[in-house]
């Protein structure tokens, strides 16, 4: 069942759309539920669809289309590193290798203690700050160096 808090947040999003267009809030509703539960199970997606009165398959289509939704469990901290051209030109490879070595996982893997997962992200629209990464979809860190990555990871302890 969706939590009271999640419903409150989804209801706020619904105020942005005409009353007969509840499906429009599905992007934010999925985001709200994922933030609360860590990832989106089929049950979570179904609950969102039911709350918005839309077909479950339509909610599933959205969840699978946009790459910031996680359809399998991720670590407590999901780290998405951009490797696209502007980041690549400023040595995102070094950042990726540092993270892989330090965490002992590859892309799309979770550390044994369930604390971290690593993901290769596509362009995040902040290339002036390359190389960069996002923690749990919502916190961006720019101008990365291996030392700075260490500091960020220490803060996540």
């Amino acid at each position: 069942m969706l939590s009271k808090e999640a419903i409150q947040k989804i209801d706020y999003e619904l105020t942005k759309y005409p009353g007969n267009q509840r499906q429009a809030a599905v992007m934010s509703a999925l985001r709200i539920v994922q933030t609360e539960r860590g990832w989106l199970s089929n049950e979570s997606i179904t609950e969102v669809a039911q709350y918005l009165g839309m077909p479950e398959i339509a909610a599933m289509e959205v969840a699978t289309f946009y790459n910031m939704y996680d359809l399998a469990p991720v670590g407590k901290y999901k780290i998405s590193v951009c490797t696209n051209i502007s980041c690549m030109l400023r040595d995102s490879d070094q950042i990726v290798n540092h993270l892989k070595t330090k965490l002992g996982v590859g892309f799309n893997e979770v550390t044994a203690d369930g604390k971290y997962s690593l993901k290769e992200g596509e362009c995040m629209g902040a290339c002036g700050g390359a190389p960069l990464m996002i923690v749990n979809n919502h916190t961006m860190h720019e101008f990365l160096t291996p030392e700075k990555v260490d500091e960020i990871l220490d803060d996540l302890q």
């Binding site: 946009y66 790459n67 939704y69 992200g121």
Partner: peptide
């Protein structure tokens, strides 16, 4: 006027 968001699709 409202703000809405994408979630990872170019």
């Amino acid at each position: 006027l409202y703000a809405v968001h994408g979630y990872g699709a170019y």
